[in-house]
Design a protein around this nucleic acid. Structure first.
Length: 419
RNA sequence: GUGGAUGUAGCUCAGCAGGUAGAGCGCUUGGUUGUGGCCCAAGUGGUCGUGGGUUCAAGUCCCAUCAUUCACCCCA
């Protein structure tokens, strides 16, 4: 029988690494709370049609990367490859707009895409993100971007940059794509194969090509979408930039930033990790004013982003931002022999009830071995308890950091280790 | 889906003009009676990814296969 192991592209988060995740999750929660966003949790699988309609039938994610299956009832289901569609579905299903005209939501959870794994890309991965549903105004875009920036700042990450762009409304974009097609017509033959295919398919994707020849052509001949926006689109973008500047957030305007998903309108943005490998997008998002209505919901403007947690942790590791795993054990109980256990039990239980982190030896090891173990676990205090101690009510309490041992009453343990 | 790289103890790796496995770290125990971090010692631990082939003999050469990894594609 083959060795049991995780499926390709999936990873265990090991017990000695989990503190990184918990640290990140704690900061996320703090930031989301500060902006009064509420968490929403949706199922990991949904009807396949939700993603086909929401993300775009011809996008790579839907056409070749989804984990799709039929359940025993014959329903066509898919493990979610992204979360915006699920949030939109939840919004529509439960008529959020009737409860309030604006919803500021956040989420965190695993996603699934059947891609070839590489650095910063796995088949099960995690994203957190936010969706502001209801506001059409640029201050909503600004606040969403501010939250993204605030998270990286608060985590101490230095090597990242924010890129923003506006791809206008659907109508403006349609006109721009015609212009782009016209301008590039004479150079089509010079483009790489995939770009030639994109020329006829989704011409905006030409901006994403990493081929240097294509890049040169685009730089020299492609007009900027920013010159082809409607007056309203332009005003929206200008106000957004002004608000970001006012908040002290640095950004680059990159007119080639056209996100991969089909549902974006107007604002798009991306945060790139500058110390990562090929997969350097830490966070991507934008405005999607038509998604809810496209899914048969009420016309609802929206803006949000999604960010990869594994990539964030990679970036933080690259900057050595995780402190060594701090002390996890307040008090290490070292019983001298098993006859004392019944006497020790109520003491331990009482301390745990008061939220102290108490480890009691379960391996019946020697005192030397217990001290070694306590040291390895970075226990703050060790209590040595034997029959003498139980009889007299005086136990030996050792401060591991100071290497000092004192005698104290059992009842005083709490106040001593508190200080 | 397409390329390249790699697969030897829990971890990081060495071994190679082919002769039946090593280091460091870790882990366990000990250095006398109920006490850590340093040091010393002993011990634990691998059918050298798997299956074939060449050879008297293969971790070491050849083929296949699987897995991992990096990059393309796409994206977080």
């Amino acid at each position: 029988m083959a060795k049991l192991r995780t499926i390709k592209g999936t990873h265990d988060i090991l017990p000695w690494d989990i503190y990184k995740w918990q640290r990140v999750e704690k900061v996320l929660k703090e930031v989301f709370d500060a902006y009064t966003c509420k968490e929403v949790r949706t199922p990991v699988f949904e009807q396949t049609s939700l993603f086909a309609r929401g993300v775009g039938e011809f996008s790579d994610i839907v056409s070749k990367e989804m984990y799709t299956f039929q359940d025993k009832g014959g329903d066509n289901l898919t493990l979610r490859p992204e979360l915006t569609a699920s949030v939109a579905r939840s919004f529509i299903q439960h008529n959020y707009q009737q409860a309030s005209p604006l919803h500021k939501l956040w989420y965190f959870g695993p996603l699934f895409r059947q891609e070839r794994p590489q650095a910063g890309r796995q088949r099960q991965f995690h994203q957190y993100g936010i969706e502001f549903l209801g506001s059409t105004f640029p201050e909503a875009d600004a606040e969403v971007i501010e939250i993204a920036a605030e998270i990286y700042t608060k985590l101490g990450l230095k090597n990242w940059e924010l890129h923003i762009n506006s791809i206008g409304s659907v109508e403006a974009r349609k006109i721009y794509m015609e212009v782009l097609k016209k301008e590039l017509k004479d150079h089509k033959a010079e483009l790489c194969e995939t770009c030639q295919a994109r020329y006829d398919g989704n011409i905006l994707r030409l901006f994403d090509c990493k081929n240097s020849a294509c890049g040169d052509i685009m730089r020299d001949h492609a007009p900027s979408i920013l010159d082809h926006l409607s007056d309203e689109d332009t005003l929206h973008f200008e106000e957004l930039k002004a608000l970001l500047t006012a908040s002290g957030i640095d950004f680059f305007v990159d007119h080639t930033l056209v996100r991969g998903l089909d549902y974006y309108t107007r604002t798009t943005f991306e945060i790139k990790g500058t110390a990562l490998g090929a997969q350097d997008a830490l966070c991507g998002g934008g405005r999607y004013d038509d998604l809810i209505s496209d899914l048969d919901g009420p016309q609802t403007p929206a803006v949000g982003f999604a960010a990869g947690v594994e990539r964030l942790i990679m970036a933080m590791d690259a900057e050595s931002l995780f402190d060594e795993d701090q002390s996890f054990v307040d008090l290490y109980i070292a019983p001298m022999d098993i006859h004392c256990l019944k006497g020790i039990s109520p003491i331990v239980h009482n301390l745990r009830k008061k939220a102290f982190r108490v480890h009691m030896e379960l391996m019946r090891r020697s005192v030397k071995a217990m001290m070694r173990d306590a040291n390895r676990q970075k226990a703050r205090w060790v209590a040595v308890i034997g029959e003498q101690e139980l009889e007299s009510g005086n136990i030996k309490l050792k401060n591991m950091k100071k290497n000092e041992q004192i005698e104290c009453k059992i009842l005083d343990i709490e106040t001593i280790i508190n200080g």
